[in-house]
Amino acid sequence: MVKKISKIPFNGTPEQEARLKEVINESKHDKSLLMHVMQQAQLIYGYLPFEVQVMIAEGMDIPLEKVYGVSTFYAQFALSPSGKYSISVCLGTACYVKGSKDVLAKICEKLGIEPGECTPDGKFSIEACRCIGACGLAPVMMVNDDVYGRLDPSQVDGILDKYMA
């Protein structure tokens, strides 16, 4: 699936930038360390927005398009931040046949964002995930570490309202 690019304004801190610069300085002698730098950057910022990728491109002397190409090739890199509450809806086989797609659609509709995106206030992000090993509870979703099972779309409002406050 093509990754969603976040439209949320970048708000990195000078501390984060200093940490990234340090990683780049340790690695810039060897372009093959690009993946390592990108992984560290994601740990620092939580995702890899345009501003961060430009810092990496300039620092490593690698064209921005190459950095972006890597970031869109590997599933581990995110172009959109995680929200304060990260929602994962399981689309594994068991959950899928039990209707998790409808649950996901309902959440997307309620929050006005699509899987892979974060709400503008930074509160919620949604992702579709693979089997989380709770097939007996299908369909399943998680909000951070809270697990909700045997869902149907009508329960979505109630669950999300708990976190809206």
Binding site: F50, P63, L64, G69, F73
Partner: peptide
């Protein structure tokens, strides 16, 4: 483009979605 040292185009995404484009589309 790489041979010109410009490198503003490349392969983005993967698998069936792979397409030639610029950074951040």
């Amino acid at each position: 483009c790489d041979n010109q040292n410009i490198s503003v185009i490349g392969a983005n995404a993967r698998g069936f979605d792979t397409h030639i484009g610029s950074a951040f589309e």
